[in-house]
Design a protein around this nucleic acid. Structure first.
Lengths: 135, 135
DNA sequence: TGACAAATTTTACATTTGTACGAATAATAA
DNA sequence: TTATTATTCGTACAAATGTAAAATTTGTCA
């Protein structure tokens, strides 16, 4: 299946799509309710953003009573992968390592987070040895 | 000293500023020469971007012969910190941990990178224990 | 069935972004 | 000093973005 490459999302669109993911699916109102305190944008604005996301292919909707229930179409993983790649390209010339170092340095992590991270890194590192060059 | 908060950079501006960092300072032409192959934008475009960066306060210039030599004013660390924070806010609701996990998972790292990362994480984790709540 | 409320659609609009041409200017070589 | 060349400056402009008011439609309750 030729998975079409969707047009890039704007930051605000990204923000909205994230909220929709956290809801699985929802109406404009639902998304509005998820806006964090301090981030106040009008209902109509959220709606515009959802419409644009739909036009770009990131979400779809289905009528439910008088309201529209929106749901994400693109897989979260894929969208994130692309966003991260773009970001790393612009700010780090494509090399993710400096970003990782930055994150570890700048983030206050809980002990659990450290353990989890270490574990994952260990795993990834070991896997790396087992599959030296497989695509 | 009340360090003023600079207006956000656009992705293209970020890209250009990154190149300027890598040069320490340089003319429009210098920056153009640093554009990676495949990324071709006109001299005049680069110039506009630098001009806008200057207006926003990220770079400054000084005349050197007939050319202008641009140099970054904002500290790289700070700009990166802010960019990363913004990005994490939009895509992960402010929690950097999922981004770290994603990066470790998705990135093909060299053995050295793994070691380096592990070391840094260990260090950060230990430091975390020694300073339980100091700002 | 008619009024009311909730939601959508339509339309709008200032700003930012990406991109660049052409004119002006300054250095330089002849 | 003049022609040439490199470089900036001013200007432009379509598309994307952030934001939303106004108009309209659609359920729903009395």
């Amino acid at each position: 299946m030729t998975r079409k490459k969707l047009p890039a999302m704007s930051p605000s669109e990204t923000e909205i799509l994230r909220l929709l993911w956290s809801l699985s699916s929802g109406t404009v109102q639902d998304v509005c309710d998820r806006l964090p305190p301090g981030r106040e944008i009008a209902y109509a604005t959220v709606q515009t953003l959802l419409r644009r996301l739909e036009k770009k292919g990131y979400v779809t909707h289905q009528a439910k009573g008088k309201a529209h229930v929106f749901s994400p179409t693109a897989r979260r993983e894929n969208v994130i992968r692309r966003s991260v790649t773009d970001f790393v390209d612009k700010l780090f010339g494509g090399d993710p390592v400096p970003l990782m170092l930055h994150l570890v340095d700048e983030t206050h992590l809980s002990h659990d987070d450290y353990e989890r991270l270490k574990k994952i890194i260990d795993q990834a590192g070991r896997q790396d040895k087992r599959e030296p060059k497989q695509g």
